[in-house]
């Protein structure tokens, strides 16, 4: 039998019907939504840059290293807030990461299966508590506890360190670090747990069959295998601590200067924005400076998150291939 032989016509739809129009439309619509997500990110950067323009023009890069923040004299520098953000985030990681790792190890490796899921839920409830409620609790419970007992104890035992010297204020940088540590626990422990459960069972068995104890098999077989996933989890926690606003704003004391002591009030990028954005409205340079802080916050948070996602994706991606 001889058929007409036209190789070129294979993929063309010569008779588009109603259905293919519907497909085209729907595909275009959902594609537009997808691209909108991407465009949104670019738009955020552009809009913030435009609003920050007066400050960008006036102070240039000096904005980042100047310690002077004075709306009255129109002098604006971001250094105290960068310092406050970095130090509170570092404290949060220092205190929060070990606890999160312990929880993840307990949940994925040690806990009896029957309490694994309930425990996971309970820890995740920490993430369901709004930030502003952490702040409220911080003011009334954490601040008196830390300023009344913990800080004097630290001053007594480690008082030779400059960071523990000086007057103990109620709301201070140390309290902000502690509250951030609590707030990053759900994120860090959940992502770490995902990484640990993604470790193939044979890794644990290989270590156990060498005569390792349970802890040794966790250390050799599990933790070292999942280290890039865990690192990603820590970075995600850093991202959360870095931009967290309300709880910090309520307990850090809001002072626009750098103090050596951790027991003195301070300010972070986000707490300064939350405190001053409304006041700044109407003064171009002041507003520009506040928005520029937001731009700095966004760009650094973007970097941290890109890095963290790459770590997590790479880790979870490679284990999928191995299983």
């Amino acid at each position: 039998m001889a058929f007409p032989f036209r190789r070129g016509a294979r993929r063309a739809r010569l008779h588009p019907t109603g259905s293919s129009w519907g497909d085209t439309l729907f595909r275009a619509g959902s594609g537009a939504a997808g691209v909108a997500v991407l465009a949104l990110l670019g738009l955020i950067a552009i809009v913030l840059t435009v609003n920050a323009a007066p400050s960008l023009r006036t102070f240039g890069l000096g904005f980042l290293v100047s310690g002077e923040w004075n709306p009255v004299t129109n002098q604006f520098g971001a250094l105290p807030f960068i310092y406050g953000t970095l130090l509170t985030s570092a404290l949060a990681l220092l205190l929060g990461v070990p606890v999160s790792l312990g929880i993840a190890i307990f949940v994925s490796e040690l806990a009896p299966p029957s309490i694994r899921i309930p425990l996971t839920y309970v820890v995740e409830l920490l993430a369901a508590v709004p930030s502003v409620v952490y702040g409220l609790w911080g003011i009334y419970v954490l601040v008196p506890l830390l300023a009344g007992y913990v800080a004097p104890a630290l001053q007594g035992s480690l008082g030779f360190l400059p960071v523990f010297q000086g007057t103990i204020y109620g709301t201070n940088l140390f309290t902000a670090g502690v509250i951030l540590a609590i707030m990053i626990i759900p994120t860090v422990s959940a992502v770490t747990r995902d990484a640990l459960t993604a470790v193939p069972q044979n890794q644990r068995e290989a270590a156990l069959s060498l005569g390792a104890t349970r802890w040794e098999s966790i250390r050799i077989g599990v933790l070292s295998y999942a280290r890039s996933g865990i690192f990603g989890a820590v970075m995600l926690g850093l991202g959360r601590a870095f931009g967290e606003t309300m709880a910090v704003t309520m307990v850090i004391g809001n002072r626009n200067a750098i103090s050596v002591s951790w027991f003195a009030p301070a300010q972070t990028l986000s707490s300064l924005i939350a405190n001053n954005i409304r006041e700044a409205l109407g003064t171009d340079l002041y507003l520009g400076a506040v928005v520029e802080l937001g731009l700095v916050l966004m760009l650094v948070a973007l970097l941290i998150n890109v890095f963290a996602r790459l770590m997590v994706w790479r880790f979870l991606g490679t284990t999928e291939g191995l299983e």
Binding site: R10, R11, R13, H15, P16, S19
Partner: peptide, 20 residues
């Protein structure tokens, strides 16, 4: 990817609407 013809009642289905 597909090449060639598939004829349903003598008519190439690759020139018709796939849904139909």
């Amino acid at each position: 990817r597909v090449e060639g013809h598939v004829l349903l009642d003598g008519k190439d289905v690759y020139e018709d609407d796939p849904v139909a």
